[in-house]
């Protein structure tokens, strides 16, 4: 398997006898997934900027309602449960992809999609309720920061749902070729990363408001 030994990963004992300059390029799987990992980290940096804006503006309610008056923790807990459960079913989907079990992929993808859709809809109705109360994003700096941060996360989840639907169609039409499997596994990384961002959201925004 000397020919498969690859990449500029330093610090490997087994590859020590092959100079760095003589190892071949890393496999497409590793390059693609590592590149996607870098994208996810830069996406998290975007969220960091929004978190910073929220942390700075959280007290600037301009005489309007504060977070403690607006947020319902039971509602947030149900949202959180939906997203956490969908992260788990997404992991199950990744396993099914690696084992090339077509039916299991559809099953877990369907459950993941349903839970993700439930999360997005709950968030959408929460936003609608807040706007109906007169607590829209234009009311105060706090609410602008809130809608930007939570809305951006919701938008990411919505894009993820579209991606998942497209992937299900690709599995159906193209079959489990390496390209499709790679995309499915990248989707798994994306979904888990969104759940990590949500931990920050519910801790800082919803629980921090008390």
């Amino acid at each position: 398997m000397i020919a498969a030994v690859a990449s500029g990963t330093p610090g490997e004992e087994d590859a020590g006898d092959i100079p760095l300059s003589q190892r071949g390029p890393a496999s497409t799987e590793i390059v693609a997934r590592f590149g996607f990992w870098l994208f996810l980290l830069s996406d998290i940096v975007i969220f960091a900027a929004l978190f910073a804006a929220y942390a700075v503006l959280a007290k600037e309610t301009a005489g309007g309602p504060s977070g403690a008056q607006l947020f319902d923790r039971t509602y947030t807990l149900i949202e959180t449960a939906c997203l956490l459960a969908s992260s788990f079913t997404c992991g199950m989907m990744s396993l099914a992809v690696e084992r090339r079990q077509g039916l299991a992929i559809y099953l877990w993808a369907g459950i993941t999609f349903a839970l993700g859709l439930a999360f997005v809809l709950m968030e959408f109705f929460e936003f609608l309720g807040m706007v109906a109360q007169g607590a829209g994003p234009t009311h105060s700096a706090f609410l602008s920061a809130f809608f930007t941060l939570v809305g951006t996360h919701g938008l990411h989840v919505t894009v993820g749902l579209c991606w998942l639907a497209v992937m299900a169609a690709q599995v159906a039409t193209l079959g489990l070729r390496p390209m499709v499997m790679r995309r499915l596994l990248c989707f798994g990384l994306f979904w888990h990363a969104l759940d990590i961002v949500w931990i920050g959201v519910f801790t800082i925004v919803y629980l921090g408001a008390g």
Partner: peptide, 22 residues
């Protein structure tokens, strides 16, 4: 194979252990 290649994020080595991991 696994060590010198480096591992892609999200990749697990052993299928049977992974359900338990999740």
């Amino acid at each position: 194979d696994a060590a010198p290649q480096g591992r892609a994020p999200g990749r697990h080595r052993d299928g049977s252990r992974s359900v338990k991991t999740y």
